[in-house]
Amino acid sequence: MIKFRYICLTFATAAIVSLSACNSTPTAETPSAPVANSTPQATEAVSQNNHSGHGSKAKININSAILSQLDKFEAKLGVPALSNKIQAARPYASPEDLVTKKVITQEQFDQIKDQVTVQEVVLTGEAKDVDYMTKLGLMKGHLFVAQELLDKNQPKQAEPHIGHPVEEIYVDVEDQLNERKVKEFKTTLVSLQDLVKSKPKDAKVKTDFTASVQSVDGAIAVLPVAQRSKPGFVLQVINELLDSANSEYGAAIADGKIAAAIEYQDSRGFVTYANDLYKGISSKVAQADPEAHKAIETSLAELVKAWPSVIPPATPVKTPEDVTKLIKTIEENSQKAIDKTSTQAQR
């Protein structure tokens, strides 16, 4: 599946227009208030100003979404490798091309048509920063599970998780990295992946891995410290990471079994990093809204139980429905906390 995924990505790269690039059209203005559950990289221009919270469903651009986003369709429809199939059939002139190109059936399209778009949007202000940090957060999640697998002497399983940040994400955030004058680190990630693939026991693996993590951390650090510690901002990033984790977990499970270890591991990494981010702002959220904080903290503690180890268990600890319910609770209470902190900041 990984080889197929990478091949698809190679052919699709020319069709991918970074959703955070500054030359995308149409242009949209960023909402003046933080938007907690609008996936910035997938929000249509016509709806960007209408998001009021977690009840709204942002659409996914099938021409440029990364695999973690497309996995939402794979999880919902239960079609194996659907993310790769969507990517391989790019570009699309309209959402209906999914049917005309025989990627999915009309019946399947009817189930997701309200979530599909081919429109682009230029992100500005906070929405752009949320998108940027979310993409880097996904990289962190991938590298987290890669490190766990290397520690367990599982280099073959670790290698694709080092590759995903390069193949899936870097191309999508590259324009923002350049715009923010972040030193190029794709080469560092590729070098690490090659080394793990060819010489997994080489002592240089540890050094290169540290350098890769530091490169991602350095890219995150270009955002102002005040912004990276602001609850309203961080909660938006957390919700985006959990949304991706939810999709990956759903795509990992079939017929009550964990059929795709990679998706299971991806979701574990995203949840782990989201949990780490929340620890950094938990005291501020608790001060602003104790009830919302308690609900978020309790739900996160329960959520992480779905991934008892980086190696998937024989049977899932939690069903996709269980995971979705917990993430929804976190999102709803995050919105309450965002609203509360926003109100307090305006006083």
Rank of each mutant, 00 (worst) to 15 (best):
E184D: 15
S282Q: 15
I330Y: 14
G163I: 01
N37D: 09
M1I: 09
Q346D: 12
G55A: 00
N333I: 06
D110E: 12
A286L: 06
S267E: 00
A245D: 05
Y278T: 03
H142I: 00
T324L: 07
A345M: 07
E263K: 04
E167P: 03
Q111F: 00
A288R: 05
S52Y: 14
A337D: 13
I281F: 09
D172E: 13
N23R: 05
I296Y: 15
G250V: 06
V118R: 04
S282W: 02
E120N: 13
I262E: 14
V310N: 09
Q227W: 04
V225A: 12
A146S: 15
K204I: 01
P31E: 03
G163C: 02
M133C: 13
Q48A: 11
L123A: 10
V216T: 06
C22G: 12
Q157T: 06
I220S: 14
E74P: 05
F233G: 02
N275L: 08
Q147H: 07
A36T: 13
P308E: 01
I2S: 06
A12K: 05
S47Q: 07
P308A: 00
L277M: 12
K72G: 00
K305D: 06
V285W: 08
S68P: 04
E291D: 13
D217K: 09
I281D: 03
A337M: 10
Q157L: 13
S309L: 04
F209C: 00
E44H: 00
G55F: 08
G163H: 04
D114M: 00
Q115D: 15
I2R: 08
I296E: 10
C22K: 10
G250N: 11
A158E: 09
P160D: 03
I281S: 03
K305H: 05
T30G: 04
Q69F: 14
D151R: 10
Y278D: 05
A36K: 05
D208L: 11
L235K: 07
F185Q: 04
G125R: 06
L98F: 15
L192P: 15
F144I: 02
T298K: 04
I327D: 04
A288N: 08
V145T: 11
K181V: 07
T207N: 12
Y6C: 00
L300I: 10
Q111Y: 00
K76Y: 13
P313I: 01
Q157K: 12
A158T: 08
K3E: 12
V304P: 14
F4T: 11
D243Y: 09
A226E: 15
Q287P: 06
T10W: 05
N61P: 14
T134R: 08
E321P: 10
A292G: 08
I253D: 12
T319M: 04
P80F: 08
K328S: 12
I220R: 14
G256P: 15
D175T: 10
I281A: 04
I220H: 14
A295N: 11
A260C: 05
L98M: 08
E174W: 05
L77C: 09
L303D: 02
R347G: 12
A251T: 11
A127V: 03
Q108D: 11
A33M: 09
V130I: 13
